[in-house]
Amino acid sequence: MQYIITAVGPDHRGLADPIVHCVTELGANISEIQMFDHDEESLFSMLTRVELAPGRADELHAAAADISDRTGLSIRTWSPDIVGRKPRLAICATYRTETPRAVLTAIHNGLINAEAAVMISNRQACRSLAEEFDVPWFTIGDDQGNADDERLVSICDEQNIDYVVLARYMRILPPASVWKYAGGRIINLHHGLLPSFPGMRPYHDAYAVRMLTYGATCHFIIPELDAGNQIINQSTFSVSPGTSIDEIVRRGQEENEPACLVEGVRRVVAGEVRLHFNRIVANS
């Protein structure tokens, strides 16, 4: 089975060695290692992807816990090879309900073979949606919508979340949070076509250059910003010349974005695509 080990903590010497020694002693085959030092934050981050016999999973978890105690690193071990249960999703949203509703509906109808374990938001706008689908709701924002990023990670840990789905979640996750759930576990919906329109107003940016085709992009979030190489799914729609920007935005938000995200999440949950060295690979 494949396992992904992430380690995040205050930067100092000798943090990588215990993890490498641990997995090699367990007989694991290392297929990927990424390490970064975030100098501005004095943050060490590491991802290790290994192939390990299923019978040694408990040993891996115990060894990771021991390393965490000795080094102070926040360590997580997770396998995308989920057996005997459905993947558990945390659906994060802020204001718009169309995309989270589409994901919840697809789960309810069996199109996405997963469990909506929690909804998380920095605002209250989507709370009624969680109540409608009987999904536990967590608010992590203050009165101004500033999110408690550590609380988001804690909720995902407590709820044994496999994938975090950012369904128009209007906050940027900090590097530490992204590293903790690195390795293809954070799925984002961007309301524009990447890499051409990466900004906060992609519809308006495309409209300004007289585009007649608009779209949305479902992609993995990775710690180092590199939009364009982690695309899971893209969907587009065309408009006639003279179509108003209001109509373009409406079609995008109400029709195209939800469909794009649902198909992207379906592909990931079904194991059709994975992330390897920050590149999308088809899972044979």
Rank of each mutant, 00 (worst) to 15 (best):
E40T: 13
E40M: 08
E40R: 14
L43D: 11
M46N: 10
V50S: 14
V50W: 11
V50H: 09
L52H: 08
A53I: 06
P54R: 12
D58G: 07
E59I: 01
E59A: 10
E59T: 01
A62Y: 01
A64P: 00
A64C: 15
A64K: 00
A65Y: 14
A65Q: 10
D66E: 10
D66N: 05
I67H: 10
S68M: 07
D69E: 12
D69L: 12
R70N: 02
R70P: 00
G72M: 00
I75V: 15
R76K: 03
T77Y: 02
W78H: 12
S79H: 07
D81Y: 02
I82A: 01
I82C: 03
R85W: 04
R85C: 05
R85M: 09
R85Q: 14
L89A: 02
L89R: 02
A90Y: 04
A93M: 10
T94S: 15
T94Y: 11
Y95L: 11
R96G: 03
R96K: 10
R96I: 15
R96S: 09
T97A: 13
T97N: 08
T99D: 03
P100S: 02
P100D: 02
A102F: 04
V103T: 06
T105A: 06
I107S: 07
I107H: 06
H108G: 06
N109Y: 02
N109E: 14
G110Q: 13
G110E: 13
L111S: 09
I112F: 03
A114P: 04
A114E: 03
A116P: 08
A117D: 09
M119A: 06
M119E: 08
I120P: 05
S121H: 04
R123D: 14
R123F: 15
S128V: 14
L129R: 11
E132W: 04
E132K: 14
F133Y: 15
V135Y: 09
W137H: 13
D142L: 01
G145N: 05
A147G: 05
D149V: 01
E150C: 05
I155V: 15
I155G: 05
D157I: 03
E158G: 12
Y163Q: 07
V164H: 09
V164C: 14
V164Q: 14
V165I: 15
L166Q: 07
A167S: 10
R168A: 04
M170V: 13
M170L: 15
